[in-house]
């Protein structure tokens, strides 16, 4: 979670420049909204509540900054991923494959599936622009690192509690796979390109 917050803070810094996909940020705001409805149904712990509120605040502030406060620096020509291509399958799958057919559970499942693909508009955008600003690459790196640590967490919990959440694990693996392509570019290209400060060239 700390890494996720770092990624969010990096993202807020990033808003002063363009290169961020507003659509991905809208999807993340939707992910946290549909997942954290249990804030109103059952209190778990102060930490749990505080972290959820931080995630919700950051994601909505981010969307506001992109589309209103810094709308001039928003590169909408390249942020053209069709969200319906993500929302329709994710909605359908959350009705088909879930743990129980109740509103809260379906919304939770929807948010888990949506989180897996929420970064795609961002990856699509940097492939269109052909390069990613250095801070964008750091943002994606921390987000990817947070995902990778979840894999380690699931392995750890499986060996200690002999439990795993199938829907969360499968969708988390899918999400991490999307980052692997980026990680490869980050490691191979990031080093040599770092000098000229123009970020990493992303082949289409």
């Amino acid at each position: 979670n700390a890494l996720h917050v770092i990624a969010l803070l990096l993202l807020l810094l990033l808003l002063l420049s363009c290169g961020i996909s507003g659509k991905s940020q809208v999807l993340f705001a939707l992910v946290f909204t549909t997942r954290y409805l249990d804030l109103f149904t059952n209190f778990i712990s102060l930490y749990n509540t505080v972290m959820k509120v931080i995630f919700l605040l950051c994601s909505y502030v981010t969307v506001y900054m992109i589309y209103w406060r810094f709308w001039k620096s928003f590169d909408s020509e390249n942020d053209t991923f069709r969200l319906e291509f993500l929302l329709v399958p994710v909605t359908g799958l959350s009705f088909l494959e879930n743990y129980s057919f109740t509103p809260l559970e379906i919304l939770w499942t929807f948010s888990i599936y949506l989180e897996s693909v929420a970064i795609l508009p961002q990856l699509f955008m940097i492939s269109r622009t052909g390069e990613a600003e250095t801070i964008t690459t750091h943002y994606l790196f921390f987000l990817g690192l947070y995902r990778a640590l979840y894999l380690a967490n699931w392995i750890w919990r499986y060996h200690t509690e002999n439990f795993y959440d199938q829907i969360a694990v499968v969708s988390g693996v899918v999400q991490t796979i999307f980052y692997c392509d980026f990680f490869y570019l980050y490691v191979t290209k990031g080093r040599c390109q770092e000098g000229d400060g123009h970020g990493i060239p992303i082949p289409a």
Binding site: N1, L37, N48, Y99, L104, W108, D165, A168
Partner: peptide
Amino acid sequence: SAGDPDHDEL
């Protein structure tokens, strides 16, 4: 699943 802290992703 939703609201289950022990077995849920944040």
